[in-house]
Design a protein around this nucleic acid. Sequence first.
DNA 1: CGCTATTTTGACCCCTTTCAAGTGACGTGG
DNA 2: CCACGTCACTTGAAAGGGGTCAAAATAGCG
Lengths: 247, 247
Amino acid sequence: MKNQSETHHETRHTASLERMLSSFGPLGADDIAYIRDCFTGVLQTHAAGSPVILAPERNEARLVFKGWAARGAMLEDGRRQIVGLNLPGEMIVASGAVDTDMLVWALTDVVTIDGTAFWTGMSELRTQSPPLLEAWRHYRTAERLRMARQVIRLGRLNAYERTAHLLLELHERQARLGPVVAGVLHLPLTQDILADILGLSAVHMNRTLQQLRRNALVDYRAGRAVLQNLTSLAQAANLSADCGPSL
Amino acid sequence: MKNQSETHHETRHTASLERMLSSFGPLGADDIAYIRDCFTGVLQTHAAGSPVILAPERNEARLVFKGWAARGAMLEDGRRQIVGLNLPGEMIVASGAVDTDMLVWALTDVVTIDGTAFWTGMSELRTQSPPLLEAWRHYRTAERLRMARQVIRLGRLNAYERTAHLLLELHERQARLGPVVAGVLHLPLTQDILADILGLSAVHMNRTLQQLRRNALVDYRAGRAVLQNLTSLAQAANLSADCGPSL
DNA sequence: CGCTATTTTGACCCCTTTCAAGTGACGTGG
DNA sequence: CCACGTCACTTGAAAGGGGTCAAAATAGCG
């Protein structure tokens, strides 16, 4: 449960963020430079399981540099629901994400860096670069759409469909954050956590993954999932136009 | 399935919007004036069941003036999930809400008015009024939080809890849009539609409502629901701090 | 006063959960 | 090097919440 701060000023902590934003709209060299200038703070380490605490009054935002974080809620009777994930290159905001009952915590060991400057810079249009703002806007829209998809998954898909649907989303999401081998998914989550994302019991999560494995759609194990057949997986996820080029 | 446009320039179509924004932060007379100036367009009527089509390329936004709209998706096998509702005084945006598979449609007869000017005005900071921007930001945050709550409802609450939870949310939401009698909820939705919001079958939705009625928590009928005991309803919804002052 | 849309009801089935026990894979300490 | 505890993953059996189907009862409405 360590939560210390380290003074790091390595090469670039923003590589994933840059790549992700670029995937939403081409950025210029000046945009990249601007982004890098925004993240000069101190890295902070959050041990797996520990909360990521943000200061709402400062409108604090943090960029995930390493590891996976989750935003969600825990009911007092032990039930837990993850609303959304934060992968490296993505940002965590205090407002809205965190509230009375909503909180953010580290799923794996996580390293973050302060991104308040960047966040407020974007929302207050401190940069004049239209491409950057455009990319940013698309990113925010994609986030919104992802949440909507999460609602549909939980509301109308069964366990099998949900799982396929989520894996496909994560696959396309990782492609935005950095180069990936098609079909190979870095997935450092226990089945327990996957269950909390998909609104299932851990036991049923396990059985569903086995079913996907048996059907030769997904090979999941030890922090890594291989989507062996993207098209039939998409079919299983009940995505008609859904998983198209845009996703 | 009429979808005609009418030329109306009545008193104020923005009353609910004004009230709602004010509930997030006090507005000045100039802010009210600004808002009114933004909505001088032609009213548009959407018959119940018909889609509300927005132009994403124009970044079109529309203010709901009358009636209830829904944002969601329909799977090709007939399953349908509503992601979120749009009550009078709230805005519908093209980006994010509408996509390949996501769409917006009228649940009741709906009247909307173009709000693109206001929307882009807010996101591009064309107004310099800090209070207005502050209220707007809070509104957007509340929207985000609402979606997160929808995820938690669908992921971890059972039918009974879900229903109680939703009714409480709508109750507090209507209070922001205009004066309401405590506990009385204008609810122009069929059980069919409620089921599509809560991820239930219509049959089970019906049984759940009966259960709430039997327990003297909710009296639901004909476009109107009376929440007879807010505290025990909140308890049923599994809201500890959740339904507190902020919601 | 019929016609259609919505609400109810009953019976049956199955997807998921729950409970409980068992198997591995590691990492630590003796 | 092996016993031991922990954590994640499996498996089995039983119960339950919610879905599905189909038909009846109401409620609206022109």
